[in-house]
Nucleic acid binder design. Structure first.
Length: 667
RNA sequence: GCUGGCGUAGCUCAGUUGGCAGAGCGCCUGCCUUGUAAGCAGGGGGUCGACGGUUCGAGUCCGUCCGCCAGCUCCA
């Protein structure tokens, strides 16, 4: 058969040749680095014979083939997967009564869920202090360089084996495998595990790993089933990559918006109102800047802003379907024998507004924007700073349009997304979330909506991943997952196509043919919720906002008391130009007040002493570049005004400087 | 919501076998009148998350509740 290598070269081999032999034939160095192989689109062990794993039509035909190393994402996955087995093996060596559940690879690492028990069968509670011990045993396993072998078993034999071992979870997994599935076992030394594979050729290939944490996790995610212990870990190609990853984790902790927010005077989270943030003047300044920016971008595009009631009668929610499909997430109340609910979404109210007058095709699209407050009940355990709250304000809009206008509207929405995320220096990935189990409407209509959304993404020249079953109950969603400066992903923006609400609210417009037609509805939010978005921005910028976003853009520091009046004049001149300025005239020495300003991450400090007051200048100190020396006041005001107006990124950029970066490849 | 951990001054945290509630930073006052990463001195500040119990005596032990953190689950 003919293998087509990634560089396009074709290699003729016998079907009985193993992937490892192919690697060896290509080069000894490749064989040394080889972790697994990709044959067709299957990732397989190096020990597999290519003829056994090639896709069926490959008989005599051409089959794509690649040797995977730790540099390939799929190779790294195999590498981490074997590391999970090494983890399980180590835990077993320490606590022989341990029963294993599942140990998958996840983004950036892996975990293994286990019921840890000692030889006598007593449950063992792991803590962070146990991790180094486990790591030491894992290092032993790696040092022993145990060959990893794959065995195909009859389902009944596998079941019997795990039953004999008391591995109840594995038995349950075997029983749940689909009828025709091949049951495979992977062995390394004394350890074996039910596993689909593939795996590294031997345990000695793992170079750098670290166990990160231990936490409880329910078997199969079901709180009625046993709580297992989940050990999280990660593995990288080498020590340097591992260190870099750990550094990013540390940096993420330093940037935690729950710490920075109160520290920078942005918001408070208080016991008095769990999930409902309190916004302080500086945080609310940031909020208003974002909200007004959003308005400013949307008004020219024909959006009209509305405001609808926060509490509405249950009949509305019954009509929209929320009562049946979203009630668990709503705050409800009863008065005079009637049920009410705080709105968790604006769409039903907007539908009432759309339907309140006769609409002509000439009026379409109608675009209602709203920044009003929503409330969603979230279970107490899910609350998390600003990223998961019960009070949220979306930069929401509902577009009512004719079916043939969907493409153009979606293009307009993509334009807004690019404008906003581009300005903030964030990229995004798109996921198409399709029909959930609990849905309203006609499956055929759903299918059409999903197709339309996919087409819209294609028309924008973008790619998407599928998120099956994760759509809203009324329609499929495009989710925009933005990547922040630390490479973490957050779901913020969303665009949803909805044929159901127009139906339920019997919405119509009069077409050019004089007939009534059903409009299509697009739900969309760009920031998502202001709360979450500000939380993400705080972590993205580490609190060091670019000048246009900074709640205080310039802090004026008089050297001595006698410079107070001049400092006030400087601040007044800045405010006159629409800039946000504050004066720190406290009795501390200048060095002390500079430290305070730095801790508040103010972009510019303007120092005013005798020389400056005399010459009408200020000594400019920039957050990233330090002391820039004296500049004429008018020049400083103008430069700062221009910087803010352009929404320029912070001079130092949002990307963190890492120990691994020498400054040449800063992202 | 579930499992585990935690809750002491505005913040970060000490507080021994149950025996007079502490430190650093911040805050206030005074001195200094300040020149680019923390000047000196003094002072105020606590229902030890809430409620109940055990005890001569509870920050400390027990119970219930509330909140926070991690994970599960869920999602903007």
């Amino acid at each position: 058969m003919a293998l087509v290598l990634p560089d396009g070269a074709v290699r003729e081999v016998q079907g009985a040749t193993t992937a490892a032999e192919v690697a060896g034939a290509i080069g000894p160095r490749l064989l040394r680095d080889a972790l697994a192989a990709r044959v067709g689109d299957r990732v397989v062990d190096l020990s597999r014979r290519v003829g056994d794993v090639a896709p069926a039509p490959a008989e005599g035909g051409r089959c794509p083939f690649a040797i995977l190393t730790v540099r390939d994402p799929q190779g790294l996955e195999v590498y981490r997967h074997t590391t999970t087995h090494i983890l399980a093996q180590a835990v077993r060596r320490l606590w022989p009564g341990t029963r294993l559940a599942i140990g998958p690879v996840i983004e950036d690492g892996f975990y293994y869920d286990m019921d840890v028990r000692d030889a006598a069968g007593n449950a063992v509670r792991l803590s962070a202090e146990d991790l180094p011990r486990i790591e030491a045993v894992m290092a032993d396993v790696i040092r022993e360089d145990l060959p990893v072998s794959r065995e195909v078993m009859a389902r009944a034999d596998a079941r019997a084996l795990f039953e004999k071992d008391g591995e109840d979870f594995k038995v349950e997994i075997v029983d749940g495998l689909p009828a025709g599935a091949e049951v495979t076992l992977y062995r390394q030394g004394e350890f074996y595990d039910l596993c689909r594979g593939p795996h590294l050729p031997s345990t000695g290939r793992v170079r750098a790993f670290r166990l990160l944490s231990v936490a409880g996790a329910y078997w199969r995610g079901d709180e009625r089933r046993p709580m297992l212990q989940r050990v999280y870990g990660t593995a990288f190609a080498g020590q340097e990559e591992l260190e870099r990853y750990l550094w990013v984790q540390e940096e993420a902790k330093r940037r935690d918006h729950r710490r920075l927010g109160p520290e920078l005077g942005l918001f408070q989270l208080r016991d008095e109102a769990p999930g409902f943030p309190f916004w302080l003047p500086r945080g609310y300044t940031l909020w208003r800047i974002l909200e007004n920016w959003s308005r400013q971008l949307q008004e020219p595009l024909g959006y009209t802003e509305v405001r609808t009631p926060i509490i509405l009668r249950s009949e509305l929610w019954e009509r929209s379907g929320h009562w049946g499909h979203y009630r668990d997430n709503m705050f409800t109340m009863e008065r005079e024998g009637e049920r009410f609910a705080v709105k968790p979404m604006n769409c039903p109210a907007h539908c009432l507004l759309f339907g309140s007058e006769t609409r002509s095709y000439r009026d379409l699209p109608v675009r209602f924007a709203e920044y009003g407050q929503l409330a969603r009940y979230e279970r107490s355990g899910t609350l998390h700073g600003l990223l998961r709250v019960r009070s949220l304000h979306q930069d929401d809009a509902h577009i009512y349009c004719a079916p043939e206008q969907i493409g153009a509207e979606m293009a307009g929405i993509f334009g807004l997304f690019d404008r906003i995320y581009g300005t903030l220096g964030m990229t995004y990935e798109i996921r198409l979330a399709t029909r959930p189990e609990d849905f309203i409407g006609d499956p055929e209509v759903w299918r059409k909506a999903e197709e339309d959304l996919a087409a819209a993404v294609g028309a924008a020249g973008r790619d998407f991943a599928l998120a099956p079953g994760e759509g809203a109950f009324y329609g499929p969603k495009l989710e925009f997952h933005v990547t922040d400066a630390l490479g973490r992903k957050w779901q913020c923006a969303t665009a949803q196509l909805d044929f159901n609400f127009p139906e339920r609210f019997d919405l119509s417009y009069v077409g050019s043919d004089g007939q009534r037609h059903r409009p299509v509805m697009i739900h969309r939010a760009i920031f998502g919720s202001l709360e979450r978005f500000i939380g993400v921005l705080i972590e993205h910028f580490g609190g060091a906002f670019p000048a246009w976003l900074a709640p205080v853009q310039a802090l004026v520091l008089p050297i001595a008391d006698r410079h107070g009046p001049y400092a006030d004049r400087v601040a007044a001149a800045l405010r006159e130009a629409g800039l946000r300025a504050a004066v720190d005239g406290g009795g501390e020495k200048i060095g002390r007040r500079i430290v305070a300003g730095r801790l508040q991450k103010v972009p510019y400090m303007l120092i005013a002493g005798d020389r400056e007051a005399e010459a009408g200048t200020v000594a400019v100190r920039c957050r990233s570049r330090g002391d820039l020396g004296p500049r004429p006041l008018e020049q400083v005001v103008e430069a700062l005004r221009a910087e803010a107006a352009s929404r320029a990124p912070a001079p130092e950029g949002a990307a963190p400087r890492t120990p691994a970066q020498s400054g040449t490849d800063g992202g």
